[in-house]
């Protein structure tokens, strides 16, 4: 608890007030922050931004220091600042899932989380799940079952599916249909994807 901002005290700086103060119109993601942010808040007399603030993000096991404005989403921090372009910007409004990353092993739409909110959490992007030479079981199954065409939705799906199979090691087709509704594909790769996810789940998932 010591690292977290106490949101219970109305007189203090609430998370809501903090976001409001930024004027960033951000979406609450339910994940709380962070040591560096707290320091920044203390240093700036309770206000960060609109200028850049230092943030340390733990991504794929590595600490990455960067300086971002508080309004920068995790998605844009990954893509624009760290050149981790596997997560894609498609709807930018929490609908399509193309930007999915794992935050503390849970799938999260990175377009709907601020980079400063992600401090103090373990972030895994698609780049952290496997490489072309060493793919995880979900990635192998996606290739084998041709669960991708243009491939633009694929990284988001692979991240979501990797979390899904960890949670459902004996996933049935019905569970796949119900559990992967948070991502969208335009080329129509769901047929191969259903087979891929069931297959990957059998092989021990991610």
């Amino acid at each position: 608890m010591s690292d977290e901002i106490d949101t219970s005290k109305p007189a203090g700086l609430s998370r809501r007030g903090f976001l409001k103060g930024l004027g960033a119109g951000s979406v609450a993601t339910g994940l709380l922050s962070p040591a560096g942010l707290k320091e920044a808040l203390a240093r700036e007399g309770g206000v960060v931004g609109p200028g850049e603030v230092p943030v340390t993000l733990k991504i794929n096991g590595q600490n990455r220091k960067l300086s971002v404005e508080p309004r920068v989403t995790l998605l844009d921090a990954l893509r624009n600042r760290l050149d981790l372009t596997g997560c894609k910007k498609v709807c930018d409004r929490g609908t399509c899932g193309a930007c999915t990353v794992l935050v503390d092993r849970h799938p999260v739409y990175s377009c709907s989380m601020l980079a400063v909110e992600a401090e103090g959490h373990e972030i895994t992007s698609i780049e952290g799940l496997g490489t072309p030479e060493r793919m995880n079981e979900v990635q192998k199954a996606f290739v084998h079952h041709d669960a991708q065409q243009c491939g633009f939705c694929t990284p988001g799906f692979v991240v979501a599916c990797s979390a899904f199979v960890r949670k459902h090691p004996n996933a049935t087709l019905e569970q796949v249909r119900a559990g992967l509704g948070g991502n969208l594909c335009r080329c129509g790769t769901y047929a191969g994807m259903m087979l891929a996810v069931v297959d990957a789940a059998k092989k021990g998932g991610a």
Binding site: R79, N80, V143, Q148, G151
Partner: peptide, 19 residues
Amino acid sequence: RIDGPLKATGAAKYSYDIN
């Protein structure tokens, strides 16, 4: 497909990904 592994791992660089 021969570029399947590049796509499935996020290594494929789309035009939107060019920095």
